[in-house]
Amino acid sequence: MIDRNRYVETLTEMLRRASTQLPSDVVEALRAGQSVEEEGSLARKALDTILMNVDLAREQVAPICQDTGTPVVWVHHPLGISTIELGDAMKEAVRQATSRQFLRPNAVETLTGRNTGDGAGRGIPFIHFEEWDRPEIEVRALLKGGGSENVGMQYKLPDNGLGAGRDLEGVRRVVLDAVVQAQGKGCAPGTLGVCIGGDRVSAFEESKRQLLRPLPDENPIAELAELEAVLLRQGNELGIGPMGFGGKTTLLGVKLGALDRLPACYFVTISYMCWADRRAGVRISEGGEATWLS
């Protein structure tokens, strides 16, 4: 049994942090980009503005971007906790964060075009539940904006046009193609979450789950770690730059994961996260104590 009010309060605080405070590894990556862009270039100016904006949002406890995105949430919980209660509390937290202007009312009824007004809707927020063998509850969330969501891609290999076969070389080819197709439209410099394999649904979830990884972490699978480094380097060689103004900083990170697949299917699924790579997490002990995750 969870203490609902306290749980809602903690989750609302998690959404406030996600919307107003960019994770320190993302800020570091943006600063690194700033330092390699030429003084006086549009790329440099864009990164100067972005970093100024990040500071301002944190100081003023205001949304980094007016598109506060869709909350995508992963919950790990122990045996015996009701996922109905947990899901209900998460939805309430979205409503409260919206009423306090940490989130913009971002749920639109597709058939009527009406905005629900409180940030919650059918399928919003999207919550993934997983039971684990620990006593505490862990919640991690991404706030994923619409511009970046629009440039996500799913390829099926082989792709003859790109000369992409069913191997990691094929993956390299389609991922670079996705970066070129996105140009600056997903608010570059972005971070790519990529799932190799899976089905059309599981793959998009896994690609987004990859975005929870801190930028400097290393993939435990050696060949994926290597491909991540290659894609990051080559992605930045494309010259698209911040906001698509041209420049050296097109990507901040590339995170690859693999799921098993049907023999007939080989999907490569790419979720693009904008520079405002908003994620937050919290671990809640049995007694309700919150520990913030980076």
Partner: peptide, 27 residues
């Protein structure tokens, strides 16, 4: 930033063309 001007200039087309050429080389 001025990215499209009144003299037919557009940064977006330039950057896209250049990035496609670089992609072709990388592939």
């Amino acid at each position: 930033m001025v990215t499209m001007d009144s003299h037919g200039g557009t940064l977006h087309e330039e950057v896209e063309r250049e990035s496609r050429e670089r992609l072709a080389r990388l592939l």
